[in-house]
Design a protein around this nucleic acid. Structure first.
Lengths: 210, 210
DNA sequence: AAACTTTAATTGACACTGTCAATATATCTG
DNA sequence: CAGATATATTGACAGTGTCAATTAAAGTTT
């Protein structure tokens, strides 16, 4: 008893990995409210009412916490896009392929504009572990999905699905990124009242199918 | 004499704002070598052989240091793009407008792929002061330049220069961003050997002018 | 030239971060 | 019930940005 340890006992190891989802939920809230930079291990721990080192049992480091969160968000996005595809199929009679691609692209842009911080996090390579299988898997699957849509589409000679997929995704991603960054595009687009992405996407797809 | 102040005297206030450009150069080197996150005030100060608080006399905070650096980089980019435009004019006889636009877009992509960390910094809104007049001015000027090129171009009915400008820039920016992020696009593009951006840009501009 | 002012550098401190180590405890397994 | 395991705790360390107080040098005025 001579070596009475420094201080009072801790209290709540609520077994069963119960903390992990709570941490992720808190991280998501923090992300939406103050951006990825504010999602620190210690802030999340505080929000959950646990000590600053408690998260270490569930996430090796900050990167791994953010990676897990990003994987969740990517799954959300994928779900939203699948839903958009399904709806397009229901509502459209002619030109189904183009309608589905339009829905796909519009859903991507809509997600980005609706959840700026979430969208930004998805591409913050410095904060994420790009080698993570869950994250990479979800991303690749989404890209494969787009490629699939483009492959069934009858493309004019000289145009291949891969280039078209890269182009469409680049177009959407570039647009959203710049809108969220508050660049000239964002300013011009807001001032002019009518967001430009729908016309942009429509033009691109019209040109693609000639 | 009773109050002999804490410690030894400092040495080099080399008057005349001489430190400022040195700090910026060190920051640029650090950026290229280890990315924007490694460009800390203290690291830059160390690289310049001054104390950790010396930079405060030239830059109010880290954000303002990075903003100044980004403004320099944007000016570099603008210069490279002007040069590309001039060269395109010299080398081309027919379809000058499209050739110039191609050169513009290719130069943007080339800069991004050649200087990944510099390009990334340009869009790191969290690290930069987007309200900074120097930075915003250079960016706006570049966009205005593109718009100018598109305005002199004879566009088919139903297509306006602004949408075309936003689209072209989004396409390039999205492509470079994803290439630099190491996403599926980067993987597919590297595996396939032939980078896809030239075909992408050509397709876009061909469709634009119908 | 001498005295004063301004600019820019110094050290030191504070709060915050991620991460590690040592410790204690609640729950699960036998 | 006893032991093992997973989990949470406190504490410490190095690193960061930023502030304050101090001091030296350069420029300016008289």
């Amino acid at each position: 008893m001579a070596n009475s340890p420094p201080s009072a006992p801790p209290r709540k190891p609520a077994r069963k990995g119960a903390l992990r989802p709570v941490l992720l939920a808190a991280a998501r809230t923090q992300l939406d409210r103050e951006g990825a930079d504010a999602v620190t291990i210690r802030a999340v721990a505080r929000a959950c009412g646990v000590s600053h080192a408690a998260p270490a049992n569930h996430f090796a480091d900050r990167r791994s916490l953010l990676t897990a969160l990003a994987a969740e968000l990517f799954a959300d996005l994928a779900e939203a896009m699948e839903k958009a595809l399904a709806e397009a199929t229901k509502k459209t009679s002619t030109n189904l392929g183009v309608a589905r691609l339009t829905a796909f692209a519009e859903a991507l842009v809509a997600y980005g504009l609706a959840h700026p911080e979430r969208y930004r996090l998805l591409w913050r390579r410095d904060l994420l572990d790009s080698e993570d299988v869950a994250l990479q898997g979800t991303m690749d699957q989404l890209y494969a999905r787009l490629l699939e849509e483009l492959t069934v589409l009858p493309l004019p000679a000289g145009k291949d699905p891969e280039t078209a997929a890269v182009g469409l995704w680049s177009l959407c991603h570039g647009y959203v990124s710049m809108r969220l960054d508050g660049n000239f595009i964002a300013r011009h687009d807001k001032e002019s009242g009518a967001p430009r992405h729908s016309a942009m996407i429509a033009n691109y797809l019209a040109a693609l199918t000639h």
